[in-house]
Design a protein around this nucleic acid. Structure first.
Length: 467
RNA sequence: GCCCCCAUCGUCUAGUGGCCUAGGACACCACCCUUUCAAGGUGGCGGCACGGGUUCGAAUCCCGUUGGGGGUGCCA
């Protein structure tokens, strides 16, 4: 196993490649990452791929990409890995053999059905330790079970405090499957041991596993790591975020135009808050202030609305040049770059995600923008719409082609109808863009040019007559 | 069922016995600004689940109740 020279604490993030990368996993990774930095430690990435049926290589690549997107990657010296749990299978089996040799584990040949039947008969759920003293040896279909000792197991948790478990409530759990492969509980502990992990920070759903793993550390004669179980992320129904029913894929947020720095910042505020009266803070400060002891104890609702607000703030914090740069990939490559540069600052304050950029200015880059019926009806409805269009067309045929002049001209036309600019601009806006909302109108017209503006206005005017 | 965790505005949180007539953020509402829509500014609505203790004093400590959640696999 490779090691780094930092000598500080060693933390790990150990996802299993069973699907797209979960935002909850991202937060756990971020917590580990922040701590690795603030404590001068090492962040170890270990892919837990011991589930033969759900182990898909493409998911592993997805995890690594997603982590890189939020700033966690091999280009940082704090990062170590990725390691693959499956590659350590022999070490897991060696540990199992050791446990068996020392009488701390035993073989059992009961099938799941038989265990359930016994439980039903006795009225007590779970495995009853039937094979504890039957002296069975290894064999096909024989699972190796840990002999849970009497007493209580006390877990010292950095966020929960002291948690006590009566060992009598913990059944003799399986270490090695009937097919000879090690299960998570064992593999996880053995790997943490061989990778010299001393801080285990993971989601609260693992808390019930912890006494079992702690017993394993003790049985293996190893020091117990520092535990920290952070609350899970939940949906609106307050249920743990699930891949099946909730929008949890980090990749999806990336593809919808969320900025990684906004996502990182938001994720960190779920279960924790920076000091001061704003939650929008730079990563450096998060690293500086984040402490496990300050993590909340209760589940946090993953609120996409708030994420969106964060994202909008982050977009607005960008310089215009940066914003334009970030828009690359979000707007068609054949769009006139100069034209977009002019519009960019006007768009920047109006979007919450990068995905909203192109639709907002599309009308400036296509020949015939889609006409929104509701907008059309509303804007062209008043009887003054047609004459106003006529008069502004006339004015625009000779007006100086600058936003200010265009605004002044329309203002004057509106006045003759007793209209404020807010009302008067509506028919022109819909005529040119097809919609009633969009970027500032006169700047848009300036960019569009006299010929195209007049063409669209005349076309719209004709349609008003037609009805 | 059993084991474990949790409980401050709708949501995310600050609060670690007096600084709390409980602070901030998101959302929402109003007003201002204004070429639509945003952004921005100002203001507002809104919370310590309940009941007992402990204490001169409790959002903060203890117990109970209720309510949520997690786990209960030869998944991780």
């Amino acid at each position: 196993m490779t090691t780094t020279a930092t000598g500080g604490p060693r933390l790990r993030f150990a996802p299993s490649p069973t699907g797209s990368f979960h935002v909850g996993g991202a937060r756990t990774a971020l917590y580990n990452w922040a701590l690795a930095h603030s404590m001068g430690g090492t962040f170890v990435l270990r892919i837990e791929d011991t589930d033969e049926v759900r182990n898909h290589p493409q998911w592993t690549a997805g995890i690594i990409d997603a982590l890189a997107w939020i700033g966690i990657g091999a280009d940082d010296p704090v990062f170590e890995g990725p390691y693959f749990q499956s590659e350590n299978a022999q070490a897991h089996l060696d540990a199992a053999a050791d446990l068996y040799a020392r009488g701390l584990a035993y073989y059992c040949d009961l099938t799941t059905e038989q265990i359930q039947a016994r439980a039903a008969d006795s009225g007590r759920p779970g495995y009853d330790g039937y094979s504890r003293d039957r002296g069975l040896g290894p064999g096909p279909g024989h699972v190796l079970r840990f002999r849970v000792p009497d007493g209580t197991t006390v877990v010292e948790d950095l966020v929960r405090g002291r948690v006590e478990f009566d060992n009598a409530t913990i059944e003799d759990f399986v270490l090695v499957r009937g097919n000879g492969t090690p299960v998570f509980l064992l593999a996880n502990v053995v790997d943490d041991l061989s990778m010299r992990i001393d801080h285990v920070i993971r989601a609260e759903e693992h808390l019930p596993n912890t006494p079992k793993q702690q017993m394993l550390f003790e049985a293996l004669g190893a020091p117990v790591p520092v535990w920290a179980h952070v609350p899970v992320l939940v949906n609106e129904q307050r249920k743990k975020l699930s891949k099946r029913r909730d929008k949890v894929a980090l990749e999806q947020y990336r593809d919808e135009g969320y900025l990684p720095e906004a996502m990182v910042n938001y994720l960190m505020t779920l279960g924790w808050a920076p000091s001061g009266d704003t939650e929008i803070v730079a990563w450096d400060r998060i690293v500086d202030e984040f402490r496990l002891q300050d993590v909340t104890h209760s589940p946090a609702f993953f609120d996409i609305r708030k994420l969106e607000a964060f994202n909008g703030d982050y977009i607005r914090m960008l310089s215009v040049d940066e914003f334009i740069d970030r828009c690359r990939g979000w707007i068609p490559g054949d769009w006139d770059a100069e034209r977009f540069v002019v519009m960019a600052p006007l768009v920047q304050t109006r979007v919450a995600t990068l995905a909203e950029v192109a639709p907002m200015v599309e009308f400036l880059f296509v020949d015939d923008p889609v006409r929104d019926e509701r907008s059309w009806t509303k804007a062209m409805g008043p009887e003054w719409a047609a004459p106003l269009l006529d008069e502004s067309i006339a004015a625009y045929e000779t007006a100086e082609w600058t936003a200010d002049a265009l605004k002044g001209a329309l203002e004057a036309v509106g006045e003759t109808h007793g209209l404020k600019l807010g009302k008067a601009q509506a028919p022109v806006r819909v005529a040119v863009s097809g919609r009633s909302v969009g970027p500032p109108l006169f700047e848009s017209l300036e960019v569009l040019g006299r010929d195209e503006t007049l063409r669209r206005m005349r076309g719209a005017r004709a349609d008003v007559t037609t009805g």
